[in-house]
Design a protein around this nucleic acid. Structure first.
Lengths: 200, 200
DNA sequence: TCCCTAATTTTACAGCGTTAAATGATTTAC
DNA sequence: GTAAATCATTTAACGCTGTAAAATTAGGGA
C-alpha cells in the first residue's frame, strides 16, 4: 500500500503550504494582518484544518522563527567560511547579518520583535528637544564642527544611538545577559565612540 | 454659569484618566492585553465613550508615545545640563537614555516597537550554529583567548551585535536615514570594535 | 413642564483565535 | 458487496477584539 505514504507526503506538503501561505501574507500585508482564516483561504481550506497541522497560531510563528534563524546562521557561516583572516571573517559575517535583516526583513522582525510602528518620531517632539538635538551639540563641540547637521555629527550620533538602542532591545526581547556585562559594554561603547570624536 | 467650566474640567480629567488607565493595564498585563473595553472598565464607563475622547485605539497609543518621548527628552536634557564637559555630557545623556529604557520599559517598547517575543533564541538553533558560536571563534582568536565562553569574548560579541541590531531596528522602525550614512556607521563600528580586539 | 442638547449605554457588525459537533469521504472488515 | 469504522473536512459556535449607529437617559433653559 503506497497510498499511506502518498497521503503522508500530501500532509507534509500541506504543512509546508501553511507556512508558505503565512509568509506570503506577511510579505504582502505585514505581520499584523496575518490571520488563521487568511492562511486557510490561501491554501483553499477552512480555518480549523490548520489546527490539524499546528497547535495554534503561535506554533506557526515559532516554526517561521526557527526557519529564519536557520537562514541567518547559514548565511553568517558561509560568509565566515569565505575568509581566512579573523578580522575579515568578522567583517564578512556581520555584513551577512546586516544583509539578511534587510533582504529578509519579515523574518528579522519576527525573530527580534522589531515592530513597525505607526508614527514618525520627529513629529512627536516639541522642536529642538529630540535626542538628536540634545546629543548633537556636545558631539559637534568635541569634533570641532559648528554645524549641528553636519554629516559627520550625524554619523557619530547614529553610532551612539545604534549601540545603545541595540543593547536595550536585545535585553528587552531576550533577558538573560548579565547586568555586569551590559554595563561594561555600554561604558566601553560610549567611551570608545567618544574617544573617536577627538581624533578627527 | 461656572458649571460649563466644571464640566469641561471633568471631561479633561476623563481624557487623562483614559490614558492613565491604559498605562496601568499595560504595566500589569503588557501591550498585547490592552483593549478598549478594559480601559472602559477601569474608568467605569462603557467602551464607546472612549471614542468621545480619542478617535480610536491608535490615537491613544499615539498620545502615550508622545508622552514617552517627552519624558525621555526631559531626562536626557537634565542629564546633559548637569555636566559641563561635552564628554561628560555625552556619557550622562546616554546613560539617562539607557535608564529610561528600563525604568519606563513599557514606554520604550511603544516608542521603538520592541516587541517582547515568545521564544528563547537559544533553543531555536541547532547546537553550534548560533551567531554567537559563529562569531566567537574569530573574536577569541584575535584576542588570543582560547575559551570561547570567556567573558571578554562575550562582551565583545555583544558589542558587535548591539550596534548592528540597533542600527537595523532603527532603520526598520523609522526609515529615512540615508543608506550612505548607514554603511559608514556599520563599517566604522565593525572596524572600530575589531581594532579594539587587538589592543587587549 | 416641555424641549432641546449633551452624555451615556445598548445593540450591532465584522473580524479574530479556537473548540466541538456535524458532515463527507475513504478505508477496513466481514 | 455491503456495513462499520476511521479519517478528513466543514459548519456552527464561543468569547474576544475595535468600532459605528441607534436608543436611551440626564441636565439645563424657556
Amino acid at each position: 500500500m503506497g497510498s499511506k505514504e502518498r497521503i503522508h507526503r500530501l500532509k507534509e506538503q500541506t504543512r509546508v503550504n501553511i507556512l508558505d501561505a503565512a509568509y506570503d501574507i506577511v510579505k504582502d500585508e505585514g505581520w499584523q494582518a496575518l490571520s488563521m482564516r487568511k492562511i486557510a483561504d490561501k491554501i483553499e481550506y477552512t480555518a480549523p484544518i490548520i489546527y490539524e497541522y499546528y497547535a495554534n497560531k503561535e506554533a506557526i510563528l515559532y516554526e517561521l522563527t526557527k526557519k529564519g534563524f536557520m537562514m541567518l546562521a547559514e548565511r553568517m557561516q558561509a560568509a565566515c567560511d569565505r575568509n581566512e583572516d579573523p578580522a575579515a571573517q568578522l567583517e564578512a559575517l556581520w555584513l551577512a547579518y546586516w544583509n539578511f535583516a534587510f533582504e529578509e526583513k519579515e523574518y528579522y522582525q519576527l525573530m527580534f520583535g522589531v515592530e513597525v510602528n505607526c508614527c514618525l518620531m520627529d513629529e512627536m517632539f516639541p522642536t529642538g528637544t529630540t535626542p538628536y538635538d540634545i546629543a548633537a551639540r556636545p558631539i559637534a563641540e568635541m569634533m570641532g564642527i559648528g554645524d549641528l547637521d553636519d554629516d559627520r555629527v550625524c554619523t557619530k550620533y547614529y553610532t551612539y544611538w545604534s549601540i545603545i538602542h541595540g543593547l536595550i532591545s536585545i535585553n528587552i526581547v531576550r533577558k538573560g545577559t548579565s547586568d555586569e556585562i551590559n554595563r561594561q559594554i555600554l561604558r566601553d561603547a560610549i567611551t570608545g565612540i567618544t574617544r573617536s570624536l577627538k581624533k578627527q
